[in-house]
Amino acid sequence: FKEKSRGVLREWYAHNPYPSPREKRELAEATGLTTTQVSNWFKNRRQRDR
């Protein structure tokens, strides 16, 4: 994950830790990652924050 991608994901996570499938697609396009990578990032981040 590039620093820029992580920044976008972290910013989004601060507002909404549970993005919808459509939001995940938009995030994937914005970061250049796949929707699966975006989903996993959020899942792992939520797990880490428990």
Rank of each mutant, 00 (worst) to 15 (best):
R25P: 04
K2Y: 15
D49Y: 13
K2L: 11
A30Y: 11
E26V: 06
H15A: 13
G7K: 12
R25N: 15
P17Y: 06
H15C: 12
T36N: 11
R46H: 03
L27S: 01
R10Y: 12
L9H: 00
G7H: 12
T34A: 09
E11Y: 03
E23N: 01
A14S: 10
F1T: 09
K24Y: 13
R48Q: 11
R46W: 06
R46N: 10
L27E: 03
T36H: 13
K43M: 07
W41V: 03
T31L: 08
A14W: 06
E3G: 07
A30R: 11
E23H: 00
T36L: 06
N40M: 11
L33V: 06
R46M: 06
E29R: 04
V38E: 04
K24P: 01
R10N: 11
Y18S: 09
E3H: 07
E11A: 08
G7W: 10
K4E: 13
P17A: 12
G32V: 04
R10L: 14
N44K: 12
L9D: 00
A14P: 02
R6M: 15
K4V: 07
E29D: 14
Q47A: 05
V38D: 07
N40P: 00
K4Y: 14
N40I: 12
A30F: 05
P21L: 15
G32I: 00
G7R: 11
F42A: 02
E11I: 01
R6C: 12
R25D: 13
V8D: 11
G32T: 04
V8F: 10
L9Y: 08
P19I: 05
H15M: 11
P17R: 08
R25Q: 11
K4G: 10
W41Y: 15
Q47R: 15
A14F: 05
R10I: 13
Q37C: 03
T36C: 12
K24M: 14
E11D: 09
T34V: 02
G7P: 07
R10G: 11
E29I: 09
T35Q: 13
E11T: 09
R45C: 14
G32N: 09
Y18A: 10
F42V: 01
P21G: 07
T34L: 06
E29F: 05
T31R: 00
F42E: 04
R22E: 15
S20N: 14
R10A: 12
D49C: 02
V38M: 00
R25C: 15
T31C: 10
P19K: 01
K2H: 14
E11K: 03
G7Y: 10
R50Q: 10
T31S: 11
V38S: 00
F1A: 02
A28R: 02
R50L: 12
F42M: 04
K2A: 07
F1V: 07
G32M: 08
Q37A: 08
F1M: 05
P21T: 12
K4I: 07
S20A: 06
A30D: 09
P19L: 04
N44I: 05
K43S: 15
L27Y: 10
P21M: 14
Y18D: 08
T34G: 08
E3F: 03
S39D: 14
P19V: 05
Y13M: 03
E26F: 02
L9C: 01
V8E: 09
W12C: 01
E23I: 00
A28Q: 00
Y18G: 04
E11Q: 09
E23C: 03
R46E: 07
L27N: 01
L9T: 00
E11V: 00
R46K: 06
F1I: 07
S5D: 07
L27F: 01
R45N: 07
K2I: 12
F1Y: 12
H15D: 14
T36D: 15
E3C: 06
P21H: 02
A30K: 15
P17D: 05
F1R: 00
F1S: 13
A30G: 09
T36K: 15
K24L: 14
Y13S: 02
E26R: 02
F42R: 02
H15V: 14
E3I: 03
G7E: 15
Q37I: 07
L27C: 03
S20D: 12
G32Q: 09
N16Y: 02
L27K: 00
L9G: 00
R45K: 08
Y18M: 12
W41K: 02
R10F: 03
A14D: 13
T36F: 05
T31W: 05
V8C: 05
E3V: 05
R6K: 09
Y18R: 11
R46D: 13
T31E: 07
S20K: 07
T36P: 09
P17M: 12
K2C: 08
G7I: 15
K2R: 05
E23Y: 00
S5Q: 13
R50K: 15
N40R: 13
F1G: 07
R46L: 07
A30I: 11
L27M: 13
P19W: 00
V38Y: 01
K24Q: 15
D49F: 04
E29W: 03
K43F: 06
P21A: 11
D49H: 04
R25G: 15
S5M: 13
N40F: 02
T34M: 06
R45L: 06
R6G: 10
T34F: 01
R48V: 10
V8L: 11
